[in-house]
Structures are given as structure tokens and as C-alpha cells.
Design a protein around this nucleic acid. Structure first.
Lengths: 187, 187
DNA sequence: TAGATTGTTAATCGATTAACAATC
DNA sequence: TAGATTGTTAATCGATTAACAATC
């Protein structure tokens, strides 16, 4: 990260916290939980710290992900650069629209019907839902049935999954409405 | 919303909570805060409820928003349908790349230099940041300087603003990493 | 009236922060 | 040693949930 590039060899919880925008307590606590230790006086060594963080977040592995829905948002996510350096790789897309299907692309786009067999064969466990809200729950079901148990959802609805499934939602409209609400009321 | 279309005339906090995925206490409490009252036995009247909610969220007004950065994510947001029905309108985009500038589009794209004068003239107060992380803070500054005090940020960094500014961030990578972390550890 | 649902207060929970002993 | 920083425990805070009196 930036600190490394700047040539720091060691870093204090205080410095890190300012960088990330949290408290120094937070940093120390998190490190403690994950077993990252520092020196009572010298702070944390940057090099081993980075290695440990990568291991914890499993950035040293490639995480295979499927994407359902190649519309506006889906396409944007597909092109999203930041994933690569976090070890995240979208290995296939699925869409209901036949005109979008194209198995010859670098990241192939298949028919939605092929989701289950693909996911099972490749043992994928993570899926991204970028479809209109009316079909989102349905897609979610299909994913879980196929064996996926982690979903990132861009549809503006609350998806229901099983107990052994995490579903994180990104509700852009809601976020923007929060901002609007604040601007109109508080300030 | 859906309940209306289904022809319900009144609705209970319990029903609403299931719909949205929160507790009934939550629903009643929120309504209470905003001064929405129901009948001790009959629940809440759907029609007035919808009207009140629209007023509270100011959906009956048009909220003008500017978008900086017309790359992958910016373009997707520009085409995002859901904004319209929430009264959110992106009135102009700004980009540093001259090849993307085009003032003749339905939603015009201007040079970033024109941000300040535009925002001041139109009295815009909300901005969306969809630029690479290295320039995000800079764009944020420009926005605030121009008079914006609500920002929705898509860059994967923590933006700093003044006290009278809200900054909501959408960190897609972070969200996805949460999912990955869960899948690899908990389940 | 009896049953059901609101509105609000109190209890719980989890996450964040402060504080400080340990120690390099 | 004196000063500084960690690691961890205790305190705080806010948000969520449960509970229940009021009442339609």
C-alpha cells in the first residue's frame, strides 16, 4: 500500500488509523484479533504486516466469482479494475437475454440456465447479482441451489437466503437518499 | 409500492416489517419519529402512508445531482433507472478526459473545470464521485468548494470533508471481500 | 367486552472508544 | 531510566429489540 511505497519500515497504530479513518484503538484491536503483533515501542513492521494482511484476506489466492446480469451495472463491475489486485476474478457471466450471450469473450457470457452446472463443476461459492429487482430473488435462489453461499447483491431489495449464506447488498439509491436526506434536514 | 398495487387499504407494522426485512418495533419506532400514526387496531392506512413517506423522503421534489467521472461506474450510474422514480436527476456530468466531454448529450458532459461555476449557478448540493481513487479526494475538495455538501463516493478510499458535509461511500470491493471472508471462514 | 395492534419506554446487544498496565 | 506504544480490559455509545400499557 501507500506506506510501503513511501519507504516506511515500521508504522504506528496511530498513523495507520489516520490513514484509514478509524481510531487507533480499532486498529490495535483488529490486529490483536488476527494475531498480528507489534513492538511495544517500535510499532508494526510494514513488510510482515502486509504479508499477514494478505494472508488473512486471502489475497494470495484467486477467488472465483460469477456474475449474473450483464446490464449497466453488471458491465461496469465486469470492467472494474480494483478486483484484480484483491485476488478477485469474475470467471463467467450469465444473462437471460440471448443477445448478450457470448461464450467466446475473455469472460464468457452464458445463458442463465447454465449457471447451476457451471457453478457446480467449478465449485464456485461467490456470486454477484446485478439484475433488475423483480428477478433478483429468483436468481438468488438459483445461485444458492447451485452451491453458492456468498452473494453480493446490487438489486434494491432485501434478498432472502439460507442460514449458511451471506448476502451483502449494495443499495445505491438508498445511499444517495441518505445523502439527500441529510442535506435537506441537518445542514 | 407493492402493497398498494395488491389492493391493500391498510397494513400492520408486522406485515411491513416482513416485507422490508426488519422488526416490527423498528417500523413503529421510525413511523413514530416521523409523526406517522396508525390506528390502535387497524394498522396504518396505505394511501396516506405513502403520501407521508414521499414527503419525508422528499420524493415529490426533484433532486438535482452532478456526477463526476464518466468511466465504467459513472456511465452505469448515469443509465441507472431507479433514480428517476425516487426524484433523483443527474443534471450534468464532468470528466477530465476531453474525449468524453460532450455538452450536447441529454445529460451533458462538461470539463471538470466547469464544475464550480455550474454547481454555483444551479445551486446543486449533491454530487457523485465516480473517479479513480487517486483523484477522488481532489474532486471531493472541488465539490465542497463549489458548495456541495452531500457526496456519494464510489472510490475505494475514505474521503475527508468538512463538518457540514455528508459523505457516504460505496466500497464494492470491500463488500465483496466481506462476502469472501465469510464464505472462507464461517461457513 | 375481548382481542389485536399501536406507540413508547426499558432492556439488550454489539460495536466503538477510552483508558491504562505492561514493556520495549 | 524516561518516554512511547502496544495489547487488552472496562466504559461508552448508539442502534436494535423486547415488552407492555394504552386503546381502538
Amino acid at each position: 500500500m501507500r506506506l510501503k511505497k513511501l519507504g516506511f519500515e515500521k508504522v504506528f497504530s496511530e498513523t495507520l488509523s489516520e490513514e484509514v479513518g478509524v481510531t487507533s484503538s480499532q486498529v490495535r484491536k483488529d490486529f490483536s484479533i488476527f494475531g498480528i503483533t507489534g513492538n511495544k515501542k517500535g510499532g508494526y513492521q510494514v513488510d510482515p504486516l502486509l504479508v499477514q494482511m494478505d494472508q488473512i484476506l486471502k489475497k494470495d489466492q484467486i477467488h472465483q466469482v460469477v456474475l449474473v446480469g450483464v446490464g449497466n451495472i453488471g458491465s461496469a463491475i465486469l470492467k472494474y479494475r480494483a478486483f484484480e489486485e484483491e485476488g478477485i476474478r469474475i470467471v463467467a457471466c450469465f444473462d437471460i437475454d440471448p443477445s448478450k450471450v457470448n461464450p467466446n469473450k475473455k469472460v464468457p457470457v452464458y445463458k442463465i440456465d447454465e449457471l447451476e452446472s457451471f457453478v457446480k463443476e467449478k465449485k464456485i461459492r461467490i456470486g454477484i447479482v446485478a439484475v433488475p429487482d423483480v428477478v433478483a430473488q429468483q436468481v438468488c435462489h438459483k445461485m444458492i441451489q447451485a452451491g453458492i453461499n456468498g452473494i453480493l447483491n446490487f438489486a434494491p431489495i432485501k434478498l432472502k437466503g439460507g442460514d449458511d449464506t451471506v448476502i451483502e447488498s449494495v443499495n445505491i439509491t438508498r445511499k444517495l437518499e441518505n445523502v439527500i436526506y441529510f442535506v435537506n434536514n441537518i445542514s
